[in-house]
Design a protein around this nucleic acid. Sequence first.
RNA 1: GCGGGGGUGGCCGAGCCAGGUCAAAGGCGCCAGACUCAAGAUCUGGUCCCUCAGGGGUUCGGGGGUUCAAAUCCCCUCCCCCGCACCA
Length: 943
Amino acid sequence: MEVDWNHIEVKWQRRWAECRVFEADPIPRDKRTGKKEKGLLITFPYPYLNGRLHLGHAFTCLKADIYARVKRMQGFNVLFPFAFHATGEPIVGVAERIRKGDKDQIKILVKGGIPESEVEKFKDPRYIVEYYRREAIEDVTRIGFSIDWRRQFTTIDPPYNRFIEWQYLRLRELGYVSLGTHPVIWCPNCESPTGDHDRLVGEGVSYVEFILLKFELNGAFLMAATLRPETVFGVTNIWVNPDATYVRVKCNNEFWIVSEDAVSKLRAQRKQVEVFESFKGGSLIGKLCKNVVLGNKVPILPAFFVDPSNASGIVMSVPSHAPYDWAAIKELKSNPALLEKYNVSTNMLEELKPISLIKTDGLGEHPAVEAVDSVGVTSQLDQRLEELTKEIYKKEFHKGVLKENTGKYSGMPVRSVKRVLIDDLIAENKASVMYECADTVICRCNTKCIVKILENQWFLRYSDPEWKEKVYRLLRTMMILPEEARSAFESTIEWLEDKACVRKTGLGTRLPWDPEWIVETLSDSTIYMAFYTLAKYLNAFNVDASKLTPEVFNYVFLGKGNLEEVASKSGLSEELLEAMKDEFEYWYPVELRVSAKELIFNHLTFFLFHHVAIWPEDKWPRKIGVNGMIRVEGEKMSKSKGNFITMREALSKYGADVTRIGLAYAAEGLNDPDWRDKEVQGLKKRLEALYELVVNIPPTKPLDREIDRWLRSRLHRRIKAATENYESLKTRSAIQECLFNLWNDLRWYMRRTSSYGDILRETVRTMVLLLAPVVPHLCEELWEKMGEKNLIATEKWPEYDEKYFDEVVEGKEALLENLVNDIREIVSVTGRKPKRILLFVAPRWKYRVLEEAIRGKEGLIKRVMQIPEVKAYSKEAVKYTEKLMKELPPVFLTQEEEIDALRSASLFIGREFDTEVEVLLAEESMHEKAKVAEPLKPGIYIE
RNA sequence: GCGGGGGUGGCCGAGCCAGGUCAAAGGCGCCAGACUCAAGAUCUGGUCCCUCAGGGGUUCGGGGGUUCAAAUCCCCUCCCCCGCACCA
């Protein structure tokens, strides 16, 4: 049947709005009596407004909406608010690019469906926010999310800024915010950290810590950069690039020699650097310098693999363990002309002997020498050296142990010596540290990035062990859906270190005590769920942001301060303050927050940190739901792949309910939902069939036969399962239960009987109720068609009663189902058309044996043989008993029950096979099939 | 590399945490039959292999082990997804 989806959706969305069903207010204090009078606050992370909402947003938000709708029907007062995130750089970036007339940016916008006339206005970031906010509201409404819109806001609204100011003042008071100094990847041109998304080249690249080891030459130190400081014990020489420019500088009261390129980097890393002279690397070659760690002298030699733009541009040579070094030595040996050019005697080279200092199982005395020689590398610029280096380093790092020639470090595993050694060397002033990008990073502005140590930045002290302990405590009491995600939270809490919470650019709230900083986006979205409780009043009364002083928030959120005083100081009325305070206390804590799994590692965990910091335990969140990442036709959804689906597109193509069920059925738990058009179309057909089913319910009458009780039993089990699934966000399983499985039950029922009991109508009715959270528009329509007057959105959720669970009746039906299948199999195997079917019910004694077997396997044969009526069949009885020892039937019926089930179903079975059925007792027959009859497995003979 | 989650039949996905009733729910797809003038929808059956009496055989990324018994427990290995921070 054709369903006019659009008509239905518009009709009910209008009705919901008229009735204000989703606008939730606290129940007046004096009427609150129990649990259900306490509000449930359900939240979805506000989306960032740099584009339209897409299927990924819809998926996550739908999980929350379905939960909200179920809880609402269960009689809870549910608040499901929505807001918008605008803090940060990207929106400003778009505006800036438009202002500059960036063609690509314009193209992106137009392709994203922005009318040409609007593009011009996108110069203003606030306009962008406003534009996408309007669009988002339309989409969210059209998909039927049950939002209380009175509470919406954006994170750049002045009242919100006041709120964040309060939050950070509070955190600072509590000692959770402090100044810190940390290295970052930095663009010298933009003068700001270069995040992944800001990079032209080098996505995912982080920095590495080089150790600069000192090699003394004429009162200055050549600073050799290494990632393997432990190999200082095996240095045979120093490498410099003869063509590169080096400088002698004064750095923190010492003279250093480094590459020219290193100077600005060292300066960015808090080093005072004064350049005295510069010269080519070639002028150093052939000289001897002193290894400060060991005290011996080693020569300086030329090498072309040395990159002056990497770290200090000076490398120490450890030919035993470093393939590059050995390759370079080999090459020099074979190139006397080069040596001559720099006046290096061949003797000097002859004296270079690899020094082994690490012993590793599976590797020889000089791993690098062996590796290089065996693959036949002859040039230091050979590509294969990179691979060999990695291979050897990996093995040595994990399994290597330092040899005797490493002094006090002898015997230590490489893995654990590193940190100790570095700390020692630095303490002894024999080494220094220099950070460098692990690989080339180029900023969007086309500038090569360096590592800068940022000073005096504000940090959230997530590393604080006491803070962490509190979060662990919260986590233990929280429900994590699904449970598998819990360990990710645990390891995140453990792994988390101090995090910069401010930036210099972008939209956002300025730090109240240090206004040159703006609170960064992941740091201003941690406790804002509390803001929804106030936003209703701020919006309704258009409250002036300047009145929202820290005292106001202290009073409302923490109950601190004196009402009169706060009122007079802020200029807000006492009534309003009281109302806001009550509203907050009514809705808080957060009942459920749903987000995608990639956010466990920051946003969701920060959410926990900030709550435990600011509020006492009774305001800590209760549940977190985590879900997978949307895919489209099996592929990751992305703009570049061209398979990006906005909510708008999906809604136009499929309509709200079909989109909803498509998403809700696509996945649950941590699994990634896969949006497949065919699958969604299948679900659409199914919904249309449901419509037809409901509209054409056949007449029913009050009947209470076994088959009616069977359907009731199934129905109640389905209600139980569906409810539990919904409550744990398992929307797929819930739909499975109440749409597919219940439908199959119904089919069986209609096949078994042609006169329908009222239970049929009740089942259909319940089905509609159970599906209402997923496909609310359709269900409202069906509800009305069934003659109901109330909105299904606030209708009472079906409750199950275990007293209707009927094992015997279900057992009987299972017996029949198996029996029909068996008969069918026989018919198909024999290819015979049945003229008559004889069914033999097993003899009584077999039921006695089965009964005993159910009691336990212990001494079963003995026990069984003590029963006289069994003993009479001892030989067969032993056989049957042994069979039962291996495997018991899944249900148990008495002989009477089985006879009854078969007799009353004989017409049905006959109908299925278009023949006659006779039910006989094995006791009274000599037929061969009478002998094989067992309880729950009647003998079958087909004539 | 490190941390987290996964790999099941043509596809999607349950099941594994508490081993047996698992050849493995359900959906999609496909095949056959019923209904229909016909199509669609719906209903019934089939969809790893073999089998003319309800049976048997080989499957749950790959390899090994524990057990009377493993998709389910243990070890090793390969592959996929998410995150690794100053970014929404």
